[in-house]
Design a protein around this nucleic acid. Structure first.
Length: 333
DNA sequence: CTAATTTGACCATG
DNA sequence: CATGGTCAAATTAG
């Protein structure tokens, strides 16, 4: 059903929660996430072992309940057409054009990365799906691309390419979303994740464990491992300091973690061009295209290490903590 | 033939 | 209502 772009039939029921309630929940969730983050980061050796498990569970519980309750529930079906699409001249006319789309607008700086470069190649495969003249620069139309693997892998990454007004030889590229696809040719590692990973799944997946568990996504075998990598910065710290004598597993798992760590962190090398300036930002409220709610965006694959130096954080939704830590994203020029 | 692009229409948001 | 993002039929390229 609900295949991307397909039927998406009705936007019927669904009580549509009040926006401020949503924000409220999100704020609360964020607050707790911050606390969680602080706990993980500021592991004063004693508090690590003592306070940890229970309080962490409580916090995560709180965050999850907030994220799952009221507004953000995946099944709620608030997303897509949000009510009713009206479809003008198709229903019975059967004219040359049958529209069943919903143009959703993206304004509000979303999870976007802006890159100015001369090179259009970035190592990924994009399919152009639109082009528009925009007010901003009438001379240079904006082209809309999305990942080629969207239909088969559900990769929701998109980008907008536009020639720079000031520098016609350069292009301003906006990247939206993250690649959940993988290059079939360059699969660096095969993951046979089983037992120990489950812990991380619980730890990391806040909203997604519940959500993703019902997902019909066929290729989420390796998610856990990858997610573990994505969050590496924080938990590895706590693991390292924790080294509780009670759990040898902790150490071994930490080792496993850190060993897989560099994979996702060091990739920023072969990006695209010698000189690219990145002006990216990761604002607060960005509702992913179909991520949390749609249930068909499967957490995150870092994609092929050779091409993507950005968007490695699966926790991007929580990414902007008020402090100064955007280390969750691998945005390092 | 299949896959990618072009292009105009549709539609949500401000 | 204007603007911008997306869809999908039609067209072109491989």
């Amino acid at each position: 059903m609900a295949s991307p772009g397909g039927g998406v039939g009705d936007g019927s029921g669904s009580p549509a929660t009040e926006p401020h309630e949503v924000i409220d929940d999100l704020l609360e969730a964020r607050k707790q996430a911050v606390m969680l983050h602080n706990m993980l980061q500021g592991t004063s050796s004693s508090s690590c072992v003592a306070a940890s498990t229970r309080q962490l569970n409580q916090l995560i519980d709180g965050v999850m309940s907030r994220l799952q309750s009221s507004s953000l529930s995946p099944g709620g079906g608030g997303r897509r057409g949000s009510g009713g699409r009206k479809k003008k001249s198709a229903t019975a006319v059967a004219g040359p054009h049958r529209r069943s789309s919903s143009g959703r607008r993206r304004s509000k700086s979303p999870f976007v990365k802006t890159v100015t470069t001369k090179e259009l190649e970035d190592g990924k495969q994009w399919r152009k799906y639109g082009q528009k003249h925009i007010q901003d620069s009438p001379n240079n139309p904006r082209s809309y691309y999305r990942c080629t693997h969207r239909p088969d892998q559900g990769c929701m990454a998109t980008k907008q390419v536009q020639a720079s007004e000031s520098n016609p030889s350069e292009f301003v590229i906006n990247y939206y979303g993250e690649h959940t696809c993988r290059d079939p040719s360059t699969i660096p590692f095969v993951v046979e994740a089983e037992a120990p990973i489950a812990d991380y799944a619980n730890l990391i997946s806040f909203g997604s464990s519940a959500v993703a568990s019902t997902s019909r996504d066929p290729l989420r075998q390796s998610h856990h491992r990858l997610m573990a990598e994505a969050v590496d910065t924080t938990p590895s710290c706590s693991f390292a300091n924790c080294h509780s004598p009670l759990s040898p597993e902790c150490a071994s798992e930490a080792a496993a973690l850190s060993s897989s760590l560099p994979l996702s962190t060091v990739v920023g090398s072969a990006v695209t061009t010698p000189s690219t300036s990145i002006v990216g930002s990761a604002p607060a409220e960005y509702d992913w295209p179909s991520g949390l709610a749609g249930g068909d965006m499967a957490s995150s694959f870092p994609s092929s290490p050779s091409s993507l130096g950005f968007m490695t954080g699966s926790l991007g939704s929580f990414g902007n903590l008020p402090g100064d830590d955007d280390d969750m994203f691998g945005f390092d020029p």
